[in-house]
Design a protein around this nucleic acid. Sequence first.
DNA 1: TTTAGTTGACCTGCCCTCTA
DNA 2: TAGAGGGCAGGTCAACTAAA
Length: 326
Amino acid sequence: MQRSQRIINAPIKFSPSQPHLYSQENCLLRFEDNNELLIVKCSSINSIVDDRGILGARAKRRYAVIEAKDEIDDRQSDDDLNDSDARNDMPKQSLSTVRKRKLSASVVQQMDENLDIDSLSIESGVFTKKRRRSLENLMHSNVSPNACDKENQTLEARVVYQTIDDMNRIILQNLEKKFAMFSKKLNQLIPNAVHQHLDSYREKDESFPSKLMYEGQNLLEIRGRDIYDYGRKILKTLYTSQELGSCILPPARNHLARPALDPVRFNIFHEAVRIKYKLSFLHYDNCYTKLIRPRMCDFLIDERKRQSKAAKQQAISDREQDIRND
DNA sequence: TTTAGTTGACCTGCCCTCTA
DNA sequence: TAGAGGGCAGGTCAACTAAA
């Protein structure tokens, strides 16, 4: 079959100097597949038939009903927003020109559940002021002299106001959540960064011995990349791997199944760390509790995991050896 | 030089117990 | 009874190493 040559339309390239090439209209869409509500530029819609728009292509194609459409001049500066209402521009197409569809309270509820915060945030900066003013225009325009229509418009505008407020609330909640997480992270980082130098746990003019002997070894000569690494190495020096794999940090507690590490040797651990990093006797307890203990606790737990893993692997290899011998 | 596997340290969330 | 503190399991990440 011979086909006629395909007509290829050159793509229209966007240029900031030619903003008129693209529509500045915004649409409130409700997706048919999941009732999701979304505000997009009309230029983002592939095609519009009556009050329905098609977005995406092929497998990702989605159909949406255009709930509302209005014109926002994004080039307008924020200063203009403060101008009197007398200078308000009229939207090209009012709400009444699109299919009348009352947004019920349940729709607003759905907004809470389905709203895509990222897509909203794209325009969040101008969203409230501009749209609110645009909607004010709708309410005060003479597009529909009919009282009933006017009432419907007012109702729709109220619902949209409510929707916008809900959107803002959701965005704020999301930001607050993010900020709380950030604060938590910061609180974790600050002690690490500040106390890495350990200066706050030191006192001037406090002298420290140059040796701390344990079974003929000067513990102060052991090197670690930081206080935690040094602490782990000291524990490995003072205790056997079996002790490290079966005990918890002192003090022992009745409700805990595992016994605590030998407290006498643990005092040597304290002294080694304190002297090595020249920590004040007065502040050491605080330093140990806040910084060192959590790391050493994790170290013991991980040591337990490692030993358990090694035991399992040993058992497997033993079994394989037995099978080979048989 | 790149890649895959290993290892140790750390993070997170859950559960349990204690205490004010 | 709520909050704090601790143990623990599961997961992630980065550093290291050996093989291709």
